[in-house]
Nucleic acid binder design. Structure first.
Length: 402
RNA sequence: GCGCAGGUGGUGGAGUGGUCAAUCACAAGAGACUGUAAAUCUCUCGCCUUCGGGCUUCGGGGGUUCAAAUCCCUCCCUGCGCACCA
């Protein structure tokens, strides 16, 4: 397999969405230009059933790497997921069971296939780290642990912070970077890619590769999609876009993102060229309505996962729903007996969490009938005829009578 | 093992016998304004309610009291200090 050595393409790979590279970009560039076929992995712990847009950024980078003719490896951290990566978590994460982890992992390959090719020439490898981690003997673990000092490990800011705040920090949590680092050794890879929140762990793998294999593993850390307050997307509830969401959900969520995210998102989440993104930046500076670009962004992203026509539909649907106040296409529909109490239906359909919540919503005039845009003011409202309702901004239901 | 400090709502963190469903901040939801947003303003934010009130909550269990998140006992958990270390 010949690799791509076109300097322009190599440079694009090494710059777009990349935050830092270790030991340096030049080090990696030199190898790539020389035509060396490299292997690089991305590790994801299967802690939830879906991948989100944040994962997509690095998956895309890994796919770019594959497209350049190199060996891409997707590592499912089924073993490490059970320990829980302490990244960003002030409290320790609940440990997942083997079963949960495997169920989650199952969905990952499918979702990752949007980017990575797992068949054909130069196919990506899919590996699980339980393959080696679960088989390690305690003596081997100790041997591994002897490569790193406590102080080196505690340099990780999250650990430091917890110590300072007198919060519990467990041994198995301190061990986490070691295990992740060992993945690099076990796979004997040339490099690793991950979000910059993974830098510490990735560098641990780099250190271990050097110590144990005498190998100079490179590390590429990518930019994260963060909101202006610095929070990772997905952290703030509601704005996380899962890769398996419907076109309409995706579209709506992206449009509700804050404007500051438009340009970074274009760079990180789409294939729109750097040149075009620079043009957009100028447009914004010249006073263009950010909304138009955001719509373009949303369509661009939706199209990646659902196709261009679905993206157009999503836009149309969004306009109808939120601009014209019509019912969305994927509205929940229920059939009820004549005279049924609205409160019971909404509670049963989990549109509201409690009757108290509905009471508040009705008092705030948040429950309106779509057809005539009239607020339902009566908590004891009974369903006598087919009716479509909007509750707040985002909740809809279509009720018909039997 | 001993001593000290703690364990409160999605989070941080008040409250140390009654006026506590529990100050406040953040997060969240709704309304207004908008561009779908952001910012801003207003409201809400345990569950049920015939809107009078009722019910269940402050690590678990037990107790004292007319009355406990608040006092006592006990168990579990965390942090810190001390001791132990053949």
């Amino acid at each position: 397999m010949k690799t791509v050595t076109d300097p322009v393409k190599v440079d694009e790979f090494l710059s777009r969405a990349v935050e830092v590279a270790y030991p340096s970009k030049d080090f990696i560039r030199a190898k790539m230009l020389r035509g060396e076929r490299l292997s690089m992995y991305l590790g994801i712990d299967p802690t939830g059933p879906t991948l989100h847009l944040g994962h997509a950024i690095i998956l895309k980078k890994l796919a770019d790497f594959q497209a350049l003719g190199h060996q891409a490896i997707l590592l499912i951290g089924d073993f490490t997921a059970m320990i829980g990566d302490p990244t960003d978590k002030m409290a320790l994460r609940k440990k997942l069971t083997k079963k949960e982890v495997l169920t989650n992992a199952k969905f990952y390959k499918k979702q990752a296939s949007t980017f990575l090719k797992f068949s054909g020439a130069n196919k990506a490898k899919l590996v699980y780290n339980s393959k080696w981690l679960s088989r390690m003997k305690f003596a081997e673990v100790l041997e591994l642990a002897s490569k790193v000092t406590v102080d080196q490990m505690l340099k990780r800011d999250m650990f430091e912070k917890r110590m300072q705040e007198s919060k519990p920090l467990y041994i198995h949590e301190i061990m986490y970077p070691l295990l992740q680092g060992y993945d690099s050794v076990a796979m004997n890879v040339d490099g690793e890619i991950g979000g910059n929140d993974q830098t510490f762990n990735m560098l641990m793998g780099r250190d271990l590769s050097k110590t144990i294999l005498n190998k100079e593993k490179f590390v590429i850390s990518t930019k994260l999609l963060v909101d202006p307050s610095g929070k990772k997307m997905g952290k703030t509830e509601g704005n996380m876009v899962s890769l398996n969401q419907s076109a309409q959900e995706m579209f709506g969520k992206i449009l509700s993102w804050t404007d500051e995210l438009i340009l970074p998102a274009f760079e990180l989440c789409t294939n729109v060229s750097i040149v075009k993104i620079a043009e957009m930046k100028k447009m914004l500076e010249a006073g263009a309505n950010p909304k138009d670009l955001k719509v373009r962004l949303a369509k661009e992203i939706v199209a990646m996962y659902h196709g261009a026509s679905a993206a157009d539909e999503a836009e149309q649907n969004f306009t109808n729903t939120f601009k014209k106040g019509e019912l969305p296409e994927d509205v929940k529909e229920v059939v009820v007996e004549k005279g049924a109490a609205l409160a019971d239906i909404l509670l049963r359909e989990k549109i509201v969490e409690s009757k108290g919540e509905l009471r508040r919503l009705i008092e705030a005039n948040a429950v309106t009938e779509i057809e005539n845009n009239a607020a339902i003011g009566d908590f004891n409202y009974k369903i006598e005829r087919a009716i479509s309702l909007r509750i707040g901004k985002k909740r809809f239901i279509k009720i018909t009578v039997r």
